[in-house]
């Protein structure tokens, strides 16, 4: 067990090392963007600044897609697959370490965006909202954590779908890119159908309890919103199936 964990850790570390330059570049871009917004904070509307500080989130979503493709692509293009597939480990070690590394990077980048947002937008805007008066710090932390977990789980689904599509495409010598795109589209379509089928069976799961902020003119109110967790749970189940299938393909069917 300890040896298996050590081997997974070795693969995971390799994955982190392989993309660290790009991740640092993205992190630097986020910081530069927020410094730019900081310089404009005196002249621009606080609401606009707050909205713009969240823009790098789109970059993170894109990174989840790109990193997954890059991580698999490098193994084939750099002939590293000769080394990786020669290792006496199950396919899920390889796919899991790649997906986990991408998730860790996403988590780090999300926290960076959140911290930068808090710093850049800290001035009058949050004070005007008087968040502290309506919310306890624990409530606020709980809400932020729920949003982050939902965001990371959603991106883990994206990572798994893209990973499965990439591996499926690589099974073929020709048109592998085109096949990957079609497999991705098909996986999403089947996933939607799968969700419709399984959602009712997962309704017993507890709902997400989110507290949302509503602003009407200058009046700020906070309300509790219940969000069903069944769609996310069924999507995660579908992602798990594709993860197992992708890992199996890599271990048993992929050829060099």
């Amino acid at each position: 067990m300890k040896r298996a964990a050590l081997r997974f850790a070795k693969l995971f570390r390799k994955e982190l090392e392989s993309q660290k330059v790009l991740v640092f570049f993205i992190a630097a871009a986020v910081v530069v963007w927020d410094v730019f917004l900081w310089t404009k904070s005196a002249r621009w509307q606080p609401e606009l600044i707050l909205t713009l500080t969240f823009l790098p989130i789109m970059l993170i979503v894109f990174w989840s897609f790109l990193a997954t493709v890059l991580r698999l692509r490098q193994e084939w293009e750099g002939n590293h697959l000769h080394l990786i597939l020669g290792l006496p480990v199950r396919g899920w070690y390889v796919t899991g370490s790649k997906a986990f590394a991408t998730l860790v990077e996403i988590a780090a980048l999300t926290i960076l965006v959140a911290v930068c947002t808090a710093i850049v937008s800290r001035t009058e805007f949050f004070l005007q909202l008087n968040v502290g008066a309506a919310y306890s710090a624990a409530d606020l932390a709980h809400m932020v954590l729920q949003v982050l977990i939902a965001f990371w789980l959603s991106l883990s689904i994206v990572i798994t779908l893209v990973q499965f599509a990439c591996i499926s495409g690589r099974m073929y010598e020709r048109f592998s890119g085109l096949i990957s795109v079609w497999v991705l589209v098909l996986s999403v379509w089947v996933g939607v159908r799968f969700g419709a089928l399984f959602e009712p069976a997962l309704r017993w799961l507890p709902d997400f309890k989110l507290k949302s902020v509503r602003m009407i003119n200058d009046y700020v109110s906070f309300e509790t919103v219940m969000v069903s967790s069944a769609p996310l749970a069924s999507a995660l189940l579908w992602a798990l199936i594709l993860f197992v299938a992708g890992s199996w393909l890599l271990e048993r069917q992929v050829e060099i």
Binding site: L6, K10, K14, E17, S18, G78, N79, H82, L83
Partner: peptide, 24 residues
């Protein structure tokens, strides 16, 4: 198995490559 092609990761040092493979 020693492949004909170069499967090594360019960003690793020789020591890191050996330690990586050795652990498996």
């Amino acid at each position: 198995y020693l492949p004909e092609v170069d499967p090594l990761y360019p960003w690793m040092t020789a020591r890191q490559t050996i330690e990586f493979v050795k652990s498996f």
